[in-house]
Design a protein around this nucleic acid. Sequence first.
DNA 1: AATCTCACG
DNA 2: ACGTACGTGAGATTT
Length: 905
Amino acid sequence: MARLVIMDGNSLLNRAFYALPPLTSAEGLPTNAVHGFLAMLLRIQKEKKPDCWVVAFDKTKATKRIEMYDQYKAQRKETPETLKPQFAYLKEILGAMSVPVLESEGYEADDLIATVTRRAEAEGMEIIVITGDKDAFQLVSDQTTVEMTIKGISTVECYNKDKLFEKYQLKPEQIIDLKGLMGDPSDNIPGIPGIGEKTALKLLWSFGSLEQVLENVDAVPGNKLKALLKEYPEQALLSKKLATMIDQVPIDFQIGDFVRTKPDSEKTLGLLHQYSLSMICRLFEQTLDQDQEGPARSRGPAKSQDRRDNENGKNNRNNKNNQDSQDNQEDNRDSQAGPSYEERILDPGGWLEQISSWMTEKTELVISYRLEGEAAHLSVWNEMGICDQRNTYSLDRTQIDKNVLAKWHELLGSPRVFKIMADHKTLYSALANEGVRLDGLKYDLSLAAYLMNPTRSSYQAAELLSGQADELFFSAAREAGLLAHEFENSRKKLEELGLSSLLHELEEPLSIVLAEMERQGISVDREMLEQIGFELEKKIAVIEEDIYQIAGVSFNINSPQQLGKVLFEQLELPPLKKIKTGYSTDAETLEELAGQHCIVEKILEFRHLVKLNSTYVKGLLGQLRDGKVHTTFQQMVTATGRLSSTEPNLQNIPIRMEEGRKLRKVFVPSRGGWELFSADYSQIELRVLAHYSQDPILCQSFQTGEDVHARTASEVFGVPLEQVTPDMRRKAKAVNFGLMYGLTDFGLARDIRIPRKEAKFYIERYFQRYSGVKKYLNDSVVNAMETGETRTLLNRLRQTPELNHQNRTVRQFGQRIAMNSPIQGTAADIMKLAMIRVDEAMKGLEANLLLQVHDELLLEVSARALPEVAQIVKTEMESALLLTVPLQVDCKTGVNWCDMGKYHI
DNA sequence: AATCTCACG
DNA sequence: ACGTACGTGAGATTT
C-alpha cells in the first residue's frame, strides 16, 4: 500500500517555535522553528519512508470560517515577529528539497489536509497526518492515522481508531460533536458555556452525537445541563460546523504531484548553510546516503509510537549517527566547537573484543545514553555513546547482536569498570527494567552540576554541554566525547567549591536508594480509591446544583474568571483582593466573605472536593500500574537540597483535613502479613535552628524534651508554662514556623488572622527572649551578602544573587533565602544521610523503603521483621548527624497510611 | 505557555 | 510607599 505523509505546516512550525530556544543564523535571522520542523521532517522521512508527502499551510485568512462566524480566531494573538519570517524560509527550503507544498486562498491547512486525505483514501493509500492540532482526530480511519505532537515536537503519539477510542471512547466522526459541545478556546469557538470535556464526553457516550443530544434534551440528567442545552443549541451546532474540517476544498491537484522525488541537494545545502542550520545539514546528508538504497519495498503496518518525554529530554532519539557518515564527521568537526575524539565504528566481533578489553583494563568510561519509552521506570535504552578517553563509540541497540548486548550489560553491571555519566539514576532505572544493576559509578555530572548551582532549570547532558558545543543535538558518541571533556572541568570546580564529598558520599549513593524506592513503588487499593471517587462525585453533584440554584445561573465554578463575575458582579460581594486578571477567588479571600453570603462556603466545599477528586482520585488512578504507583524522586530540582516527587507527587497526599486524609487509606502494604511503618523527625528544622544559633532557651527546650511551642508561648506572652492557653500555643507555633521562612509581621498576621500590629509585637517579644536566634538569622544574611552564598552543615551550596539585585523586593527575598536555606537544606542533608544508612542497615531484612516526605520515611515491613527494622530506622535517623540538640524520631505503624498508631520502641 | 488555585513539608 | 513567609507539583482554565 502506498504511503502518504501529510504535515500541518502551520501547526508544526508554531509548535517548533515555542518548543525550541531562540536560534539565529549567522546573519541574525531567527531559525529555531525552521530547525525544529526540518528535524522532524527528516526524521519522518527516515522512519516512515513515505512514497508521497506534502506540507499544507494556511493562506492569509480563514475566510470560509469567518463567513460563518465572525469571531473565529478573533482573539488569537498576533504571530510573534520572530516566527513570521520563518514561514518564508521554510517554504524556500522545502522548495529546494522538492517537498510539495499546498495552500489555498481562504482555506486553512486543516481543510487541505482533509481534502487530500479523503482523496488519497479513495485511491487506497495509507495516510499519516502529522500535526499538533487535535481537530485532526476526526480524520482517523482504517487507512488514516494521526500523529499528534505532544509537549513540544520531539515526541509524538500515534492515533489510529483503537488508540482514539481508548482515549476518548469516541469514534473519529464524534470528535466534531465533542468540539461542538465543549468549544475550543484557542480558536475562539464557543461551544456551550459551562460544558467542558468531561460533560461533553458523558453526553456523547449516552447520545452519540450533538444532534441526538439536542433532540433528546429532556432525557439529559441534571436541570442545569438541560437548561444550558436548551439555551445554546445554535451556538453548539455552529461550533460543530466550525470544527468540521472541509474535505471538499476546490483545489487542483493529483496525488501523483506528491510523489517523493530527488531534492536539489546542492541548493538545499546552500540554503541550510545560509541559515546556519548545520545540524539539519548533517541529517540531510545522511538521508541522501540512505536514499541511494531506494525506497523501501515492503513494510508492516504502521507501528504505534507512544513516546513521552523522559528525563533524557528533548534530544532523545535525535541524530542517530549513521555508519555511513564518517566523512561528515570529519567535515563537522572543524566547524564545531569543543574537543574532538575519533569516532570508531565496530562490527560485532570488534565490540566483543573492545568490551572485554575495557573490562580487563578497568578503563574509565564516559557514557551517554538515549532512552525510549515512557517514564524512566518503563523505559529501555536504545543507544549509548561511549568515550574511553581516546575514542568515542556509538552502540546502537538495533544493530548489535545479543552476545554484544549481554557483554555490554555485564560491563555496565560491573563495579570494577568506572563510569562517568550525566543523570545516573535515570539510566539505573532503565537498566533495572532489564535485570541489570548499573554499578561502578565514578562521577555523576548532573548531580555535580546541581551541587555547584542548585537553581538551574536543567541538568541534562545537552544543557551541561551548552558552553562547549554550538549544536542543538548531538550524536550519542559525540555527547560522550564532550562529557569526557566536561568531566575534567567539573571535577576541578567541584573540588574547589568543597562539594566533592557531598557528591560522592551523599548524592551519588542516594541516587541508587531512590531508584530502588521508585522501582519498588507503593501499593494502592484501586477499588477503595474508585469508591472514594464515586462518593466524592455524588457530593460534588449535589453542591454544584446548590450553587447554581443560589446563584440563579449555571456557570463553570472551576473557572476563577466566571466565578469572579458571579460573586463580585452579580451577587455584588466586595472584592477584597485583586490579581492580574481580575478578582481573586482563592480560599483565603472566600473565607473572609463566608459570613456575607451562603454561596461562599458551598464554593469552598466544592473546590475542596473537586481538588480531592481530580488531583488525588483521578490523578492517582491514572498512574496505577499493576496495583502500584511508582513516583519519580527528583534529586536535582530544589534550590535547598530537598527532594521532590513527580508523576505522581506522593509528597503532597492530603493529611491536614479529615476528608482528604481518608485518601491515605488506599496506600497499603504490597504483601500479606506486612505493615506500613512511618518514621518522622520531630521538629527537625527548629532543632537545626537551635543547633546553628545556639540560643540558650531554644536549645534547652530540646534538651529537656519540653513542648517547644508551649515554651515559646510562655516566653512571648510572659506567662508561666502552666498558664499557656491553646490559643497562645497556636500563635507561638505560627511564630516558630515563620522564623524559618524569614518571618514578617505581614505574613504572620495573615497566617493566624491577627492585626499586623499584634504580629509585630509578638515578633519583637520573640526576638527579645530568643536573642540568639535573632543574632543567628542576622548573621546568616550578613554572611550571605559577604560571600554571595549560603551553606548547610554538610556544605551544600546555594548562591544568593538576589541579595545584590536592584529591586528592593527581590533583595528582601534574598534575605529570607539566606535565613531559610541553611535550615531547610541541613534538614534535607540529615534526611538524605539517614536514608543511605537505613538502606544499608536494612539489607536482607523483610522491609522496603517506599517514600520520603521531607521529614518522614515510609516503609513496608513484615510483621516478623518489624521490631528489628523499627529499631534500625529510629537509630539511624536519630544518629545521622550529631547536633548540639538531640534529633527525635517518632514511629508509627498501621495497615494503611491513614490509620497508624504510635509504635513504642 | 501562563495563570490560578490548592495539596504537602 | 511598597510588597511580603521558605520549599515543592498538578489540574483546570485561559491565552
